Simulated assay, not measured.
Amino acid sequence: MGEDMPLLVAVDGRCGSGKTTLGEYLKQKFDCNLFRMDDFFLREEQRTPERLAEIGGNVDYERFRKTVLVPVVQKRPVLYQPFSCQQWKLLEAYWVPYKKLNIIEGSYSMHPYFENPYQLRIFMNISPEDQIANIIRRNGQEKAKEFQALWIPKEEAYFEKFQIINGAIEIMWNLKIKNNKR
Rank of each mutant, 00 (worst) to 15 (best):
K178G: 14
K29M: 13
I171A: 07
M124E: 02
L26H: 07
Q46W: 08
E160Q: 07
Q86K: 11
M1W: 08
S17H: 00
L69E: 09
Y113K: 10
Q81F: 08
I104G: 02
S107R: 00
K145F: 03
A93T: 12
N139T: 09
K176D: 14
P97H: 07
V78Q: 12
C32L: 13
F41L: 01
Q163S: 15
Q86F: 12
D4C: 00
R121S: 01
P6Q: 06
E24C: 05
K154W: 03
P49D: 10
V70P: 08
V70K: 13
M172G: 04
W88G: 02
Q86G: 06
W88D: 14
T21Y: 10
N116L: 07
V96K: 06
P77K: 04
F64R: 06
E115L: 12
V78Y: 10
K99V: 03
E115N: 14
Y25A: 03
I104E: 03
S107G: 05
K154G: 01
F40C: 07
E54F: 04
P97M: 06
L34I: 14
N134Q: 04
D60V: 10
I122V: 15
K178F: 13
K181R: 14
N58K: 10
G23R: 03
R76L: 15
I169F: 13
R65W: 14
V78L: 14
P82C: 14
C85F: 08
I104C: 09
K143A: 09
L7V: 15
D31V: 09
K27E: 14
R51I: 08
H111N: 15
M110E: 12
I103F: 00
Y80H: 09
R182E: 11
Y118W: 11
F159T: 08
G106N: 02
P82N: 15
F83H: 15
L150T: 12
L42I: 09
P117H: 03
I126D: 02
P6Y: 04
M1L: 09
C32I: 12
I164M: 00
M172R: 13
A53T: 00
E129M: 00
E115A: 13
F114Q: 06
E3C: 05
E54W: 02
G57Q: 02
R47K: 13
K181M: 10
L91G: 10
I169D: 13
G16P: 02
D12Q: 09
E50W: 01
T48E: 04
V70N: 12
R51H: 07
Y98V: 05
K181Q: 13
I177C: 04
I165P: 00
E155G: 04
F40K: 02
N139E: 15
G140W: 06
I165D: 01
V72Y: 06
L22M: 06
A149E: 14
R65E: 14
A53G: 10
V68A: 05
D130M: 07
I136G: 02
I169W: 15
I177D: 03
R47M: 11
P97C: 07
P6G: 05
V72F: 04
D60M: 09
R43Y: 08
E44P: 00
E50R: 06
G167H: 08
G2T: 12
Q86D: 12
V9G: 01
E170P: 02
F162T: 05
F30E: 08
L150H: 11
F83C: 14
P82E: 10
A10K: 01
